[in-house]
Design a protein around this nucleic acid. Sequence first.
DNA 1: GTGATGAACTAAAACGCTTAAGCTGCCTTC
DNA 2: GAAGGCAGCTTAAGCGTTTTAGTTCATCAC
Lengths: 341, 341
Amino acid sequence: MKRPTISDVAQRAGVSISAASFALNGRPGVSDRTRQRILDAADEIGWHRNSAARVLSGGTTNVIGMAIPRPATTLGVEPFFMELVSGIESVLAVSGYALMMQVVAGVDAELEVYRSWWGERRVDGIIVVDLRGDDPRIALLEGLALPAVVVGGPADVGSLPHVWADDAAATAETVGYLAALGHRRIGRIAGLPDLLHTRRRDEAFTEASATYELDSIDIVHTDYTGLEGAQATRRLLSSPGRPTAILYDNSIMAVAGMSVADEMRLSVPEDLSIIAWDDSQLCQVIRPAITALARDVTAYGARVARLLLDVVGKNGDAEQRGVQVPAPRLVPRSSTAPPHR
Amino acid sequence: MKRPTISDVAQRAGVSISAASFALNGRPGVSDRTRQRILDAADEIGWHRNSAARVLSGGTTNVIGMAIPRPATTLGVEPFFMELVSGIESVLAVSGYALMMQVVAGVDAELEVYRSWWGERRVDGIIVVDLRGDDPRIALLEGLALPAVVVGGPADVGSLPHVWADDAAATAETVGYLAALGHRRIGRIAGLPDLLHTRRRDEAFTEASATYELDSIDIVHTDYTGLEGAQATRRLLSSPGRPTAILYDNSIMAVAGMSVADEMRLSVPEDLSIIAWDDSQLCQVIRPAITALARDVTAYGARVARLLLDVVGKNGDAEQRGVQVPAPRLVPRSSTAPPHR
DNA sequence: GTGATGAACTAAAACGCTTAAGCTGCCTTC
DNA sequence: GAAGGCAGCTTAAGCGTTTTAGTTCATCAC
């Protein structure tokens, strides 16, 4: 089955190729009658614009690229990620853009992917996730002048537009809440230490502990899996001055921690309060329900996509370099209470 | 920054454009010395093949398309989906293919996406998920002769290659296991009723209940969310001859069900045994740990991707129409036991 | 009646690549 | 020594669009 081309359309409508092109792109230069005849002809033979040809003659690809610097096998573990993609897709889909995802093995591979995408003219813009300290991707993207939006910030993003939430404020608020409940020893079971947002939360956590004059804090880094979450919890709860509250960087680790407490005959929330970053169905469904730092990840993703479309010039070019989304809200549930005794 | 073209490479190496093309594509027609000179030149100026131009002159796009017929906001709920994508990516990434995802609002939108992708020559092949009864996508794809692989089957896939697992056998085995423990009343809390695999499991469940001469079974369909899983559980546990075991179609519903049991002062597994389809970190981490029907979803996705690459002719063209992956294995944990009394 | 204007349309170049066909020399072969 | 073959290259056509620079022709002002 041969694909019809624009010249088939032109022939059928009895006009030149360029008249057909004008009509099909909604440009002036053809009369309304002719335009309609051309559109009808295109419809009748089921014409679709060949995207390669369009790109070759200077058009846009209508593709947004996103490299994922995580091992493919761990992608499914973090619901944050998939929700972000959902939000991005919800905007791209209605704008006729597709999302091209590529899992990459490491930072070097990711840089290479960006260079390829740029050189091959495969994407109109890209979304950068999992920002790290001294991230070489920033400089590369600035150099290539590839339209890009960073998920994260507001520091260390160079001149790139970015979308960020005030994790530090949310962390401080959470520590304050626990302090108000009477907790003096608080633990934090965090994600990967080289991710920038982990560091920001770490710092905010430490600062807040000073502000509220806590007796002690403890931070343990993990790879976000339930397994490491459980190990870290076991470690904290076995220490001499064990914490009476733990803040987890995701919900699967919080659940794992709750099981460890159970295993050690500590009850939640009487002996141990538990809070999870990123609310999810899981937090709501489990008993006791888990107090969570809720953010609308889907809306976050949507905001990222909208900013990127602005940057690639699809919509009005409102030049916003940094966009802030609402800070996570603390949603108190049954897993937090004043400490026992 | 101007992107270098093949003619820049040719000029720098002092040869014609076609000589450069031959060399850069590893074809015969240039001497080894010249070839090396050309490759060096390309490297020095950072040349990348313009993919649009390559596609336009008959090449492949090196892109695999995947339309997702679910609302974007629920994408994050089902870990199965993301794990499948991980597996697919793990194969595509090393073969230099990218995955293009597009969320679609319904079946009609999906058909339109396929027609566009075909007409625009945007993808080399596509992956079809969430097979339904009398699925119109099958006929369309057969008609367009677009290389495609269906996730599911083995029935109702037309002539399309597909990858499937024997869910029916796993269902039967599970019912048999519960029967052997002494359960006579079993419930099933299933996913969307119009998905083909839901129907297959429903049928197998009903058949097995006859085989093992159970007293009663009950099937409730849901949208896979914890909320509906909880509601369905409440309904089953409130009925006169309430089940002593429930089989859930995913793990989040199983957890929700466990909480409902707790709420109703029924303990797991003494009063209620719980089994979840699709093992996950969640099943392992929660207390009691949940007995699960484990399948290697990542490997499943990888198999799908490999088959599709075969079909588009990347690898050897071993013509396998239907590929079977291992049936889910029952992994007994603490959430199942003989019924009380 | 003349020249200017502009709407409606066409011809042709350009985008960057692949590839079929053609052109050199040089080496064999008889 | 003429014919043939072959490696190693070049020329040029073609892929399906977009877009620039025309061309034609009717209309209008004076």
